[in-house]
């Protein structure tokens, strides 16, 4: 499994280019974070990468084939998208919602079979959401909904998971649950690509990062190289300190914003 963006550029109709010459490559077992200030086009980038929006220039390539040439059904069996939880809360039960993830495997006039249900129940157990299976998706907490949406992506059986801000709007504990789950999924050989607002989450969990800047340019590479105090100042206009914290439970890297960069400084 390998997905890459080759010189992807995108701009809305008549507008300036929002994303310029984006390059990204993700292989098996890798976890890749996409970072950037608000409004820079992180969600747009994911949507272009998945063919939900057309690139103006450049292309996305999945296992050596340009995705325009891959039948939709086959593509979505290999790649799953988890949208922002706030846009996804149809009032199905958690179990029904996960079953919808099997749609690309089920013929138009057919209903899910026992085998599909077994897959769903296995995934629910793996994500520890079995207890929620009868609850409505619009009546559970944000963290629970996020896990249900990840579950829906997993039951499709795709090797590549693309997630839009999976840990936004969650508390500390749920952020960790989601990120640790994604890490485990990557260690099992899947490719995880996720948007995030938090440079610290990228540093702590991702292998590689794509940093988008307001002028549309970007930087892609190993996470320690892409996320530094300098690049954060360039991208977010914020002075920050990156430090390593020791504790009995492990060593973590953290990014602490210190001060706004004054316009005159640059």
């Amino acid at each position: 499994m390998n997905i890459r963006i080759e010189n992807g550029s995108f701009g809305y109709k008549d507008g300036p280019m929002l994303l310029k010459q984006i390059r990204l490559e993700a292989g098996e077992g890798q976890m890749i974070a996409v970072l950037g200030p608000n409004g820079v086009g992180k969600t747009t980038l994911l949507r272009c990468m998945l063919g939900l929006l057309p690139w103006k220039e450049g292309q996305t390539v999945l296992n050596g084939t340009e995705i325009k040439d891959i039948p939709k059904r086959s593509f979505w069996q290999q790649v799953s998208y988890v949208p922002q939880a706030k846009t996804a809360a149809a009032a199905y039960t958690v179990e029904e919602m996960l079953l919808l993830g099997r749609a690309s495997h089920i013929a138009p006039f057919a209903a899910p079979a026992k085998a599909d249900l077994t897959i769903v129940q296995d995934v629910m157990e793996r994500l520890h959401i079995t207890a929620l299976r009868r609850k409505r998706c619009n009546a559970i907490s944000g963290g629970e909904l996020q896990m249900a949406l990840i579950g829906r992506a997993l039951v499709a059986g795709a090797g590549i998971l693309v997630l839009d801000e999976p840990e936004s709007n969650l508390d500390f504990r749920n952020q960790l649950i989601v990120l640790e789950t994604l890490k485990e999924l990557a260690q099992e050989g899947r490719t995880i690509i996720f948007n995030t607002h938090y440079p610290a989450h990228a540093l702590q969990h991702a292998d590689q990062a794509l940093l988008l800047k307001a002028d549309g340019s970007s930087r892609f590479g190993a996470v320690e190289e892409v996320i530094t105090e300098d690049t954060i100042r360039e991208a977010f206009s914020v002075h920050s300190v990156i430090r390593t914290i020791e504790s009995e439970r492990g060593i973590v890297r953290d990014v602490v914003p210190v001060a706004l960069q004054e316009k005159t400084e640059s």
Partner: peptide
């Protein structure tokens, strides 16, 4: 489902 969810369901 929302547009992107529906499209990405395959």
């Amino acid at each position: 489902l929302s547009d992107d969810e529906a499209a990405s369901s395959g």
